[in-house]
C-alpha cells in the first residue's frame, strides 16, 4: 500500500495498514531541509535569476521532501508562487504536475477549491451588510463562485490532483460567524452542490474549517465530503465525540492541539496526540494531523514529539 492508496482507503472509510498523516501547511522548513523555504511563502528564498520552470521544480521538490521526511501520505499544494508568479502563469496547477513528474502516484495530491463564503477577515462589515440587506445579491455571488469552482475542478484534476481540501473557515472558537439559519441559506446548499460536483468528477474532497463547528456540523456532514479537517480542540471540538457520532459517515483529520504545540508542556502535547490516536484510530477513517498546520514560529520540537507518538502508535 503506497501513501496515496493509504489515504484513499481512509477517505473511503476503510482501514489501511497504518494511520496516515499529513499537514495542511508546513512552513517551518529551514531546520530539516538545508535552509530551504517556500517560494511565495512567508520567508522567500533567494531566487534571483531562477526561471519559472525552476521555481516550480524547487517548490515541488520541497513538498515531496517534507512528505518524505515526516512520512506524510498526502501533499496539499497550498500556494502558488505569490509575487514570483506572473498573471499568465498557473503556479498551483504546474506545481501539481511537477510533483506528479517527480513522485508519480506515490502521494495523494490535493489543492484548494472552496467556493463557499468564509469568515471575511478583511471586509466583515461589507459582507455582513450585504448578507442582511441584499440576500439575492449574495446568492448570485455564491452561485458564481460555485460555477468558477467547477471549472477549476477540471483544470486541477487534469493536472494530476486527486481532489480538494475546501479551506474556507466558518467558525470562531465560540461558534459560526453567521447563524445556523444563515449558514443553511447562504453556505450549505452551495457547499453541497460543489462537493457533489467534485465527487462526480472523480475528486476526493476534504472540508476544512477552524473553530467550533458543532452548531453547523450536520450541514457539513450532509454535504458528504470524504473527510473533515481540522477538528479544532481550542474551540472545544472533541474527536472522541465526533468519532462516536459521525465516524461511520466521514473520515476525520486532525485534532492534535496546535495551541499546546506552541505554548504547552511536552506532557500536554503528548496527551493531545495520544488522545486523538486512542479515540479516532479504531475502525479506520482517521488521518493524524495537527488541528491547523505547522505555521511559522511553531517549535519544531513539538512536531517532532507528535511525530514520534504517531510512529509508535500508528499500526493497525
Amino acid at each position: 500500500m503506497n501513501h496515496r492508496e493509504r489515504i484513499i482507503t481512509v477517505l473511503n472509510g476503510g482501514i489501511p495498514d497504518y494511520i496516515p498523516t499529513f499537514e495542511l501547511v508546513f512552513d517551518e522548513t529551514e531546520r530539516d531541509f538545508e535552509g530551504r523555504t517556500w517560494i511565495g511563502g512567508p520567508v522567500d528564498p533567494d531566487i534571483e535569476g531562477m526561471s519559472y520552470a525552476d521555481k516550480i521544480k524547487y517548490n515541488a521538490k520541497l513538498y515531496i521532501d517534507v512528505a518524505k521526511r515526516f512520512g506524510h501520505s498526502m501533499i496539499f499544494v497550498n500556494r502558488n508562487l505569490g509575487i514570483h508568479e506572473n498573471k499568465n502563469e498557473t503556479g498551483v496547477r504546474d506545481t501539481i504536475m511537477e510533483i506528479r513528474n517527480q513522485s508519480g502516484d506515490e502521494y495523494m495530491l490535493m489543492c484548494h477549491n472552496d467556493p463557499t463564503f468564509m469568515i471575511p477577515f478583511n471586509n466583515m462589515e461589507d459582507f455582513c451588510f450585504n448578507l442582511m440587506d441584499r440576500p439575492e445579491y449574495m446568492h448570485e455571488v455564491a452561485r458564481n463562485n460555485v460555477k468558477d469552482s467547477k471549472r477549476i475542478c477540471h483544470e486541477m484534476l487534469e493536472a494530476g490532483a486527486d481532489g480538494f481540501i475546501l479551506c474556507c473557515d466558518y467558525c470562531f472558537n465560540s461558534g459560526p460567524f453567521i447563524s445556523p439559519a444563515q449558514f443553511e441559506e447562504f453556505i450549505a446548499p452551495y457547499l453541497k452542490e460543489a462537493v457533489k460536483y467534485f465527487k462526480n468528477a472523480g475528486a476526493y474532497v476534504i472540508k476544512h474549517t477552524d473553530g467550533n463547528i458543532m452548531p453547523i456540523i450536520d450541514y457539513l456532514i450532509d454535504a458528504e465530503p470524504h473527510g473533515l479537517h481540522s477538528l479544532d480542540p481550542m474551540a472545544g471540538v472533541d474527536i472522541k465525540v465526533i468519532k462516536e457520532k459521525y465516524g461511520d459517515k466521514i473520515a476525520l483529520c486532525g485534532n492534535v492541539d496546535c495551541s499546546l504545540m506552541q505554548t504547552g508542556t511536552r506532557d500536554q502535547i503528548r496527551d493531545s496526540a495520544e488522545y486523538c490516536l486512542k479515540h479516532a484510530k479504531h475502525g479506520g477513517g482517521y488521518i493524524f494531523s495537527t488541528s491547523n498546520c505547522v505555521f511559522r514560529g511553531m517549535p519544531l520540537e513539538s512536531y517532532d514529539l507528535i511525530h514520534e507518538i504517531w510512529l509508535a502508535n500508528r499500526e493497525y
Partner: peptide
C-alpha cells in the same frame, strides 16, 4: 449566548 451572530451585531 450564541442567539445572534456577527451580522446581527454589525447591523
Amino acid at each position: 449566548n450564541n442567539e445572534v451572530y456577527v451580522p446581527e451585531v454589525l447591523v
